[in-house]
């Protein structure tokens, strides 16, 4: 029996159908031959069909069996982590591989160490821990330089800092 219920799966399924249908219609206004658009239309059709089947499965399944995606606060991480990675990519091309790698690691580890020290009330031991992590960051930076620049001969734009 079909039970109409609006789960998160259904919402995402509807969104996928709308996007793929819109793109499918858009292909008819493209200045391309029908054979050039044959596979793209199949792909969009498959996406739409996939969305429809996802909705249908939730309508047909008993409520207890429906597996919904977890609702958790992930957006800041989805934006933040790729942004940090892009920033690192930008910085090693503009500031220098050694400097940016070392800074990237040490800034992250200092933040985490201070947070953990505050959390566990162990601020006294944070300085030696940071010094150890700085040494580790230095070793990793040197390894990265040896591997990518010396061994793999990767091209790097000339920068002010190493």
């Amino acid at each position: 029996m079909i039970t109409f219920r609006v789960t998160l799966n259904v919402k995402i399924g509807i969104m996928i159908i709308i996007v793929s249908a819109a793109a499918f219609i858009w292909t008819y206004s493209m200045p391309l031959r029908s054979m050039e658009l044959f596979i793209p239309r199949i792909s969009l059709g498959l996406m739409g069909l996939g969305g429809f089947l996802i909705i249908l499965k939730d309508f047909l399944e008993p409520a207890a069996k429906i597996m919904e995606p977890k609702r958790e606060r992930i957006l800041p991480f989805l934006a933040g982590v790729p942004a940090a990675m892009w920033l690192y990519g930008w910085s090693f091309r503009n500031i220098g591989l050694l400097t940016s790698t070392f800074l990237f690691l040490i800034i992250w580890w200092i933040c985490i160490s201070i947070r953990d020290a505050k959390r566990t009330d162990s601020m006294k031991s944070v300085t030696p821990k940071i010094l150890k992590l700085a040494a580790l960051a230095f070793i990793i930076t040197a390894t990265v330089h040896l591997l990518f620049i010396e061994l793999l001969n990767m091209y790097m734009p000339s920068t002010f800092l190493p």
Binding site: S43, M47, G50, G51, L53
Partner: peptide, 15 residues
């Protein structure tokens, strides 16, 4: 387990 998800994944790969 959900064929719709498999088809959607293949459709994205095609695209």
């Amino acid at each position: 387990e959900n064929p719709g998800k498999g088809i959607l994944s293949a459709g994205i790969g095609f695209f």
